[in-house]
């Protein structure tokens, strides 16, 4: 048990438990806060994977910007609490949970038996891969057109969101 594995297990437990808590809380604000916790834990896992830029972006964009947007809308709409989760369409939901457990079991079985690690045993990962310098260099040279397209997409989304949420929509 090295320190790295212990840190991973703690972060993974936080991520897993908070994701389950997120879908089971009846109050939507608690769900949002558990999702923030989940995003923070994922940011830590990205750091373990030596993806520094993605870890920072995860905390700023997801845990910061997107979740503030969600919480803002939740507070704005002030929706009532949901009734008990299994009240309506009970058998459909139980079936969905059972099916999800089976699918997860299958995927886990495939991952554990496929011997994924062997495929990567010859490759020596280097720490400079996920730095802001390396990602930024790729973004502004090889991927400049997708980068500009992403900017355009954000502009379009901003205008679309403004139009949709406007008071009088004609």
């Amino acid at each position: 048990m090295t320190l790295e594995i212990i840190i991973f297990i703690v972060l993974a437990l936080v991520a897993a438990v908070s994701s389950v808590m997120m879908i089971t809380r009846l109050n939507a604000v608690y769900s949002a806060l558990f999702l923030v916790l989940n995003f923070f834990a994922l940011g830590g896992i990205y750091l373990l994977l030596q993806a520094q830029f993605i870890a920072v972006a995860q905390v700023i964009v997801y845990a910061g910007a997107i979740m503030v947007l969600f919480l803002f809308v939740l507070m704005l709409l002030n929706t009532e609490k949901e009734e008990s989760l299994l009240k309506r369409a009970k058998y459909l939901k139980i079936f969905a949970i059972v099916a999800a457990v089976i699918v997860f079991g299958e995927v886990a079985y495939v991952i554990l038996t496929a011997n994924v690690a062997q495929q990567f045993s010859s490759i020596q990962p280097h720490a400079s891969n996920g730095t802001i310098q390396s990602i930024g260099h790729s973004l502004y040279t090889d991927y400049i057109i997708p980068f500009e397209a992403a900017g355009f997409l954000l502009l379009a989304a901003t205008i679309g969101a403004l139009l949709l949420a406007k008071k009088k929509f004609k």
């Binding site: 993806a51 830029f53 993605i54 972006a57 995860q58 964009v61 997801y62 910007a65 997107i66 947007l69 969600f70 809308v73 891969n129 996920g130 990602i135 790729s138 973004l139 991927y143 997708p146 992403a150 997409l153 954000l154 379009a156 989304a157 901003t158 679309g160 969101a161 403004l162 139009l163 949709l164 949420a165």
Partner: peptide, 20 residues
């Protein structure tokens, strides 16, 4: 990781439009 960057961009756009 560059692909993840673009996924984050699309997720932000999707959240904004969906919440609107």
């Amino acid at each position: 990781q560059i692909f993840v960057f673009f996924v984050m961009t699309v997720a932000a756009a999707e959240a904004a439009v969906g919440l609107a």
